[in-house]
Write a protein that binds this DNA or RNA. Structure first.
Length: 780
RNA sequence: GCGGGUGUGGCGGAACGGUAGACGCAGCGGACUCAAAAUCCGCCGAAAGCAAUUUCAUGUCGGUUCGAGUCCGACCACCCGCACCA
């Protein structure tokens, strides 16, 4: 149970219930639901991430990471809600305001802990090429997120000072096209300027309050402030350029500063045109005339030859990049580097309901790791949520401890881990869930990697990337032997449903809403009108969720399972509808009746020969084995279900056939197969049917090997061949399997309808695909 | 802006380049019943025809092929991810 996190804390604040109580009650409810569904889970391995028995090992892993140099402490910018006194995730900032308090969100710098995921950037980027059972889409999303780029880092000297400003660029070839240098509002140099320039301070403050919210990005308005500072060009020292603070420069990417080349970067172009800065083209498109080539509003980003650029003139873009980097390195002002979009993973959260970060702050010794023998650092139970901010911070005694190093009074860290940490290694813990260490080597070597991982596409980036990083880090400190945690990945689609709002604008659960025949909707009890919202992913906050318990209560678990699997391919999003549930229930009843009809028919030796109905049924049975097996292996559960319906229909046909030797045996075989192939979907019914057919067997279907098709029965007695004339179907003929071509063609031409279509035409080509199709190509 | 995906009956969806619409849901007609429920049988893309059958049809337009829902190109619509990433 991934059990730590914000929802529990919100429940605590809204309903005055302790997060632990709320969480364990939810777990209890969900456990009952999973058990009622009859899922084959190994409950001996159950645990919840909020149990000290779990998170103590997470704390140990963290300390191992710390020792291995995989943890850093850095200042970082966060979204700060001044009313709630807490840090907000980006998703919790709505239109620049805190989602709960509605207060304008501020940017604030906090000292946070970071896991060094960027040390593994190249490996994390490369390895998915070999994960051939991962969806291509997810591999691409991971690669884009990691975002490798090659370029140069170089230092610009400030005119009249010893200081420099570092920039990162992927286009060192365009350095001669520079017309300004721009820094992010959060850049240290911007702070220095602000200290003596109130107008600059106001500009920076405005940028920070607006942040990089969607509103600013959408309007795309580029805003800048000229600091009055100037920097020297690395290649032409006597020329200087203005230094601007610009809202479109991101502190988090590269160095937080760029050199502006309006001719060959659209953003720089927009900025230059707005503030009247120079635009010098330095890349000449193929075929363009250097004397007349100019740029108006569109930057040129294509290939070409460098000009207006001193020693780079005449080189192609790629060669110029190399030459520029070489020169920068020779001058000692820069070098070629690989840059990553991926940033280190900030794991500190100023929250109560999470795993405590096991370090202690001592005025004398600095940051001291909690010694292993003092783990776990337990969350205190006696906390209150009557004040904004982190309850751990307000707790009267919890954070006061003695320094493990010097023994003097010190403070516990009150931050907890991002809950993504909890889910980044649980799969390894499952291998040895009760071990006194995070995981035992023998167990993880036996089980890992996970053969088949299943999850929603919403986890395509963060959860999977973090787990991949954790696995590599755990390998480096000797816990596991594998590099990648998940050998196969299947991403299931989301289940969507309409959402409903009542008269008071509160969200309503679907079961509270009654649909009227005229299409309108009303509250089931009060009769008040209900606004029907869009069909969207089920979420607790919008209450558009369905409790499978209702179907289980009405029809039973097998019907619920059968129905859920029967309609949609599982990788596709679907809209939940119960319209097929009754049909699924009918089918479960029908399967039972098919078995009941065999009561009194004893299991005898397999007959030597079968009549035609028996042979037909046996072929259907064995074709079904092959088809269902293939469908299940490909996660096409809906197709597997369809094949089982076909088998049921074939059994019904056989029931109506005239009695013949061996037919009863064939029916028993078919019903047994139906139960066994259906057992993953409807296990309880399968066991009941099987026990009825073989009361003395003493085995469960679940214990039996998967059925295997007899190859001889997969070959049809006769095949239907489609006959086309010029690609249009004119008839179908029945022939023996693998019939000789001349016989097939003769029979095809003998068909009256085919003959009619061929009348008066000359056949110029005969296409024959054995057992499938004949096509006559005619002329005239 | 960049990247990816999807588009097939009234609905959910099947379909190694080879009979488009398997299977289910809904619907219509019938049997059984005093009646209902349950069950069973039949029909069920569109148009024409008494019928055999014919024509059209997998978002649009084109191409490759004996043959295209499937492969290729362009476009349209919707969905998802990332996004002033230098």
């Amino acid at each position: 149970w991934d059990a730590f996190g914000l929802p529990a804390e919100n429940a605590a604040r809204e309903r005055r219930v302790h997060p632990a109580k709320w969480t364990y009650e939810n777990i209890a409810n969900m456990r009952v639901e999973l058990q009622r569904m009859g899922l084959s889970l190994e409950w001996e391995r159950e645990f919840a991430t909020c149990q000290p028995e779990y998170y103590r090992h997470q704390q140990k892993l963290f300390l191992d990471f710390l020792k291995a140099g995989l943890v850093e402490r850095k200042e970082s910018w966060v979204n700060w809600d001044p009313v709630d006194g807490t840090v907000l995730a980006n998703e919790q900032v709505i239109d620049g305001k805190g989602w709960r308090s509605g207060a304008p969100v501020e940017k604030k710098q906090l000292s946070q802990r970071f896991l060094s995921i960027t040390k593994y950037a190249q490996e994390l980027l490369d390895a998915p090429d070999k994960l051939d059972r991962w969806p291509e889409r997810v591999r691409l999303m991971q690669a884009n997120w990691i975002g490798r780029s090659e370029g140069a880092r170089l230092a610009f000297s400030l005119d009249g000072s010893d200081e420099t400003v570092e920039v990162y660029t992927t286009r060192p070839d365009t350095l001669f096209g520079m017309s300004f240098l721009a820094i992010a509002p959060e850049h240290p140099l911007a702070a220095a300027v602000s200290a003596r320039d109130p107008a600059a301070e106001r500009f920076v403050a405005e940028c920070c309050s607006r942040g990089t919210s969607e509103a600013t990005i959408e309007t795309g308005e580029k805003l800048g402030y000229d600091t009055g500072l100037r920097v020297k060009h690395p290649f032409i020292p006597d020329v200087t350029y203005p230094v601007w603070i610009a809202n479109f420069v991101l502190m988090e990417y590269g160095t937080g500063a760029i050199f502006g080349c309006p001719g060959h970067d659209q953003r720089d172009m927009d900025f230059a045109r707005k503030y009247g800065l120079d635009v010098t083209p330095v890349v000449l498109p193929p075929g363009a005339d250097p004397a007349t080539f100019s740029l108006a509003k569109e930057a040129y980003v294509g290939p070409g030859t460098i000009f207006n650029s001193g020693f780079l003139d005449g080189l192609e873009v790629d060669a110029a990049k190399r030459a520029a980097i070489e020169k920068l390195e020779k001058l000692g002002v820069g070098q070629g580097i690989v840059n990553w979009r991926l940033r280190d993973w900030g794991v500190s959260r100023q929250r109560y309901w999470g795993c405590p970060i096991p370090v202690i702050h001592c005025d004398a010794c600095g940051v001291v790791p909690v010694p292993d023998d003092q783990l776990p650092v337990r969350l205190p139970d006696d906390v209150t949520f009557d004040r904004p901010g982190n309850p751990l911070d307000h707790h009267p005694t919890w954070k006061h401890v003695d320094c493990p190093a010097c023994g003097k009074p010190a403070r516990r860290e009150t931050d907890t881990f991002d809950t993504f940490v909890d889910s980044s290694w649980y799969f390894a813990r499952f291998c040895s869930p009760t071990a006194g260490v995070p995981m035992t080597k023998a167990a993880v070597d036996h089980w890992m990697p996970v053969d088949q991982y299943i999850g929603g596409i919403e986890h395509a980036i963060l959860h999977l990337l973090y787990s991949r990083f954790f696995t590599r880090a755990m390998k480096d400190i000797g816990h596991v032997s594998v590099n990648e945690p998940f050998a196969g990945l299947f991403t299931q689609g989301m289940v969507n449903h309409e959402s409903y709002r009542g008269a008071d604008n509160r969200w309503l659960y679907p079961e509270e809403v009654e649909k009227r025949t005229d299409g309108s909707a009303a509250h089931r009890e009060t009769g008040e009108p209900v606004t029907v919202g869009s069909v969207e992913a089920m979420s607790k906050s919008k209450r558009n969720t369905i409790d499978p318990g209702a179907i289980i209560a009405r029809y039973g678990a097998d019907t619920a399972r059968w129905f859920i699997l029967s309609d949609n391919p599982p990788d596709r999003d679907m809209e939940w509808t119960e319209s097929g549930a009754a049909g699924a229930f009918r089918f479960t009843q029908r399967v039972f009746r098919l078995a009941e009809a065999l009561d009194g028919v004893r299991a005898e030796m397999m007959p030597d020969a079968f009549g035609s109905a028996g042979r037909t049924l046996r072929r259907a049975t064995h074709r079904c084995i092959a088809a269902v097996t293939e469908a299940l292996e490909g996660f096409a559960f809906n197709v597997a279900v369809a094949r089982l319906y076909e088998l049921a229909n074939a059994i019904t046909d056989a029931e109506r056939a005239a009695p013949e030797p061996g037919l009863a045996w064939a029916r028993r075989e078919a019903v047994e197969t139906l139960a066994r192939l259906g057992s993953p979907m409807m296990p309880h019914l399968a066991e009941e049917v099987y026990a009825r057919l073989f009361p003395d067997n003493g085995h469960l279907v679940a214990e039996l090997a998967w059925p295997e098709a007899e190859p001889a029965l997969l070959v049809a007695e006769s095949v239907t061949i489609a006959v086309q004339v010029m690609g249009k179907l004119r008839a179908t003929i029945e022939v023996a399997p693998n019939a000789p071509e001349d016989i097939v063609l003769a029979e095809a031409m003998a068909d009256p309808n085919v003959a009619k279509a061929l009348e008066g035409k000359r056949v110029v080509k005969r296409v024959h695909v054995p057992n499938r199709i004949v096509n006559f190509v005619v002329a005239g």
